[in-house]
Design a binder for these strands. Structure first.
Lengths: 335, 335
DNA sequence: TCATGAAATTGGAACGTTCCAAAAGCTATA
DNA sequence: TATAGCTTTTGGAACGTTCCAATTTCATGA
């Protein structure tokens, strides 16, 4: 698409003429150089305002081979936690003086591949990716080999040689489970999520660890997998209730799963939070507003965003570490 | 940020050498020209693969003064409906052979202004904007005057001379209210939303129109404003219950408001859907999964996205129309 | 075989910026 | 006043693409 059919653009040269300096001086002002006199700077800024000049980043990044565009590739924007994370990342990136470009892969590797291919053409400086399921390590490593700074968030890709920032899933569910144990519950199930999600194992292990440490017996049958939406929570909870009508508490893979579980508990005629305790994972905004307010593991999206940005700043150090972001237990009415 | 410190980039010239043609021919292949022989095309494509060439859009759009980047400026990505809309727009835009850049204004005019200023530098071809509250018509008109195709979605800015696509809010709440009236309910409240949101008046009018047409008396006191989150729904519902304990049904400004209302109804010891009917607006994915499943006005995000894209295709015709996207009643358990 | 015209290919200029090395302008000191 | 050393300014080249006008190639028909 073209915007203005024929009209000439206003360029640095026009600004230079207006301000009575050279185009090089204008460029120095635009790039915020310190080696330009205040007098010249003022003249240029005045000229820019008067003449309605718009900086052309295409030309700039073509010539300078630099870019301040950071691509954020999100797995699923319709997932509330992902959206929250995207917003946090955007704000942090802007604070670094960079600009972000947000795209959504919709959990499809094909879309993700296509998006990244295009984004490379747009000369992005770095990629922040929440990898779609089945993302290949080879693909990621190739991207890195091409010289792009890459940071993965929320999910790990086995064998991928990239920095990764994710919540301490293991500690999270362990803490959640221990909270329930402390409250005196013994019959505790773990519901929701499934093995195709990279963090499932970590969250499940947190639960089993806590149960084992407390020497409370538990059955693998009470670890019911499901898809990750609200319906998944309902059906997993339904299954648990069928297997063990006397269940006392459930640790949920995520808040969304917990929402479904709560509905199913209600549907079965029991009261969530009273008859059966429920703990979630994520701490979505809704979780403290709902009723009963959901006890959950808080994962601070801003903290993740900050960690990502710190890595981006120092990516040249070849930082390929895994950073675990701390979690907190938010104790509320549902447990 | 810079990616590769010193290494030379692979350019069309390298491709040309490898393929044994001129750079002009390579360019013709890249831009999909029909006036290049199949033989040359194959040679070029082979060379591109072998040499690992990446198209440089900065150079291309600098020279051609064209761009296929469309900016989507969303008011609040953490709002589930906005997120759904953003995803729909992204897909439609990609299908048009364009590329979208998603940014979030967070309902702040200042952020919105800053984002748009930057996006202009990135040479975007068009703006799709869900305007933040207090967006000035002058600002928008100025953007249009600068030659940028602009389409507003979901919200109108009074006095702004731009094409706007939004759901038929009036018809929506009218239909919702008539549905409740048909079911025999008489004491019907309208809750949630507030006058700072451009579509509030339209939705409120739909309700009053239906009540008036049916000659069912109603009190302005039962039209309770609130902020737009779940808590707003709770407090508005609480107020309604205080004023009129015998309320039979509520039309909600949005699904999120309805979620809050349902919780408050429960908290008051009544059963949503049985004792008090609830109707929402938006039809979020969760609304059909929750319990009771929410009766609501369905607004098809894809239809909005398609309408926006149609306008973008024909923007040169100076299309400044307002397009109302049709709505549907989804009758479920809550009414 | 040659002339004709259409189709395909081509090299050089241009897009608007930054980089570079060189020039000019300053200030302080002898 | 001359000089050295520093700060500020500057014109031309370069980034990688597309556009344009000109040239070459090809197919056709006489």
């Amino acid at each position: 698409m073209s915007r203005n059919e024929n009209s000439k653009n206003v360029t640095v040269i026009d600004v230079a003429k207006k301000a009575g300096v050279s185009k090089s001086t204008v460029s120095l002002v635009l790039t915020g150089s310190t080696k330009v006199s205040d007098k010249a700077k003022l003249k240029v800024e005045k000229a820019i305002d008067e003449i309605g000049y718009v900086y052309n980043r295409d030309a700039a990044s073509l010539r300078s081979r630099k870019s301040n565009l950071v691509a954020i590739v999100i797995n699923d924007l319709t997932n509330p936690y992902s959206a929250q994370l995207a917003v946090g990342l955007e704000i942090q990136i802007r604070q670094m003086g960079l600009f972000s470009m947000l795209v959504n892969s919709g959990e499809s590797v094909e879309t993700q591949t296509s998006l990244v291919r295009h984004l490379k053409e747009y000369n992005v400086a770095a990629f922040i990716i929440c990898p779609a399921p089945n993302t290949s390590a080879e693909w990621v490593n190739n991207l890195v080999k091409q010289g792009f700074p890459v940071v993965h968030i929320m999910r790990e890709v086995a064998g991928a040689n990239v920095a990764t920032v994710l919540p301490d899933n293991f500690a999270g569910t362990k803490l959640a489970t221990q909270h329930l144990l402390t409250k005196g519950y013994k019959k505790i199930a773990f519901i929701g999520g499934n093995e195709s999600i990279s963090d499932y194992h970590q969250r499940l292990s947190g639960y089993t660890e806590a149960m084992t440490l407390a020497e409370v017996p538990f059955s693998r049958k009470l670890c019911v997998q499901s898809n990750t939406n609200r319906n998944g929570g309902r059906s997993a909870m339904e299954e648990v209730l069928e297997i063990a009508a006397d269940i006392e508490a459930v640790v949920c893979f995520s808040d969304v799963i917990a929402y479904g579980a709560i509905e199913q508990i209600r549907a079965s005629g029991k009261q969530p939070g009273k008859d059966i305790a429920v703990v979630g994972f994520d701490d979505l905004a809704d979780s403290r507003l709902m009723s009963p307010a959901l006890t959950t593991i808080h994962v601070d999206a801003n903290q993740i965003a900050i960690a990502v940005c710190q890595i981006l700043m120092n990516i040249k150090d070849g930082n390929k570490n895994k950073i675990l972001v701390g979690i907190d237990l938010m104790e509320r009415e549902s447990s």
